[in-house]
Amino acid sequence: MHIPDGFISPKMYVPAYVAAAGLWSYGLGRLRRNLDDEAIPRVAVLTAFSFVLMMILLPLPGGTSVHAAGIGILAVLFGVWTAFLCVSLVLLLQALLFGSGGITSLPVNALAMGLIGGAAAAAAYRILRPLHERAALFAAGWLSINLAALVLAIALGAQPSLARSPDGTPLFFPFGLSVTIPAVMIPHAIIGVGEGALTVIVCGIFARLAKERGS
């Protein structure tokens, strides 16, 4: 679901890098205070976990399938900051080691998916949990994907007005918000269902195992 390289202008990605860098260091600092020695190994293995979640193919109605994102699972179980750090690290590794994704769009993708998607999931879960556990998990998964997608659609759709040549030709991306929002959001409303279902299943099994262990 992420934006590839070359569609985000420096007017957006440079400030996004500055903001993301500050948030990364804050998040890592927070985690180190909470987890001490285990912070680095914890982020490493949960990033690998997040990478595996993104390998899962979710079948959707109509015979298609999409890759999961797993943001809801990470945010519900480990909090927004862990989700943000792990998703950012996956995106960085994908860009630097596997040559996929993009280095210019990295901070925008990380902020949208990890931070905003993660925060949406955690908030939805916290608010709805007293009413219905499974519905809360489903909402966390669905909302994480859809809010992240909305932010990405806005980031893309803002490009024509942010960066254009003197004659008005867009420099990075041709479509404004009126195109990007429906084009991105309509499919994600369905994709979110798969993500929601996965969040319910994984968190459900995990909770059951934790309960049986008595922890």
Binding site: R42, F49, I56, L58, L198, I205, L209
Partner: peptide, 24 residues
């Protein structure tokens, strides 16, 4: 497919948490 994905997800979650303690 969903059940299999769910089993994989929770297996890797358990494994990740276990490895994290072990690595530390």
């Amino acid at each position: 497919l969903y059940r299999n994905a769910g089993a994989a997800g929770s297996f890797f979650l358990e494994k990740a948490l276990h490895s994290s303690t072990e690595i530390a």
